[in-house]
Simulated scan of single mutants.
Amino acid sequence: MSTQRYELVFSEDPEAGEDVVVVAAAGGTGPGGHPVYEDASGIVRAEISDQGEVRILPSGGGQAPARVVRVRPVP
């Protein structure tokens, strides 16, 4: 059974702390062939492999996604 929700943990600056965004399965696959997940607004979209590798997918023009530090499954 695959995970349906994840927390994406973003951190640009260790002193600034972390931002956590919960994403849920959105259906479909990304360019790497792995499932796509998105937050409730649809702005944060990510392809997440079964090995925990994350690829942030642009959802609009002009986005410069932050570096993802880690991904955690949500029970």
Rank of each mutant, 00 (worst) to 15 (best):
R5T: 13
Q51W: 13
R5W: 00
I48Q: 09
M1S: 11
T29C: 03
E47Y: 03
V22I: 15
I56P: 09
R72M: 09
M1Y: 04
V20L: 10
E7W: 14
P65Q: 08
A40I: 12
A40D: 14
Q51P: 00
E12F: 01
G42V: 07
G42C: 04
V69Q: 13
G32I: 00
G52E: 02
M1C: 06
L57V: 01
V44R: 11
V68L: 02
M1I: 08
V22M: 09
D19R: 13
S59Q: 01
V44S: 04
D39Q: 08
A26Y: 03
T29Y: 13
R55C: 00
A25L: 15
E15R: 08
Q63K: 02
A40W: 00
I43H: 10
R67E: 10
A66H: 07
V21Q: 12
E15I: 06
V21M: 09
V68F: 01
E15N: 10
P65Y: 03
G30V: 00
P14L: 01
S59P: 02
G60C: 08
G61A: 14
I48S: 13
P14I: 06
P65H: 06
G52W: 03
G60K: 14
I43A: 13
S59F: 01
L57W: 03
G61E: 14
E15K: 10
P58G: 09
G60W: 04
L8S: 04
S11A: 12
D39S: 07
Q51Y: 13
V74M: 05
Q51K: 15
A16R: 09
E12G: 15
G33N: 09
S49N: 04
V23F: 06
A46R: 02
P58V: 07
P31V: 14
E53K: 11
V54I: 05
G42N: 07
D50W: 08
A24G: 14
G33K: 12
P75N: 12
R55K: 14
T29P: 03
V20I: 14
L57P: 06
E53G: 01
P58T: 14
G27V: 09
M1P: 11
E18M: 08
P65I: 03
A64T: 15
V54F: 01
S2D: 15
G60Y: 04
G33M: 13
M1W: 02
E7G: 00
T3D: 10
D13W: 00
D19A: 13
S41V: 03
V44G: 06
I43G: 03
E18W: 04
A46Y: 05
A16D: 14
D13I: 02
E15V: 09
E12N: 14
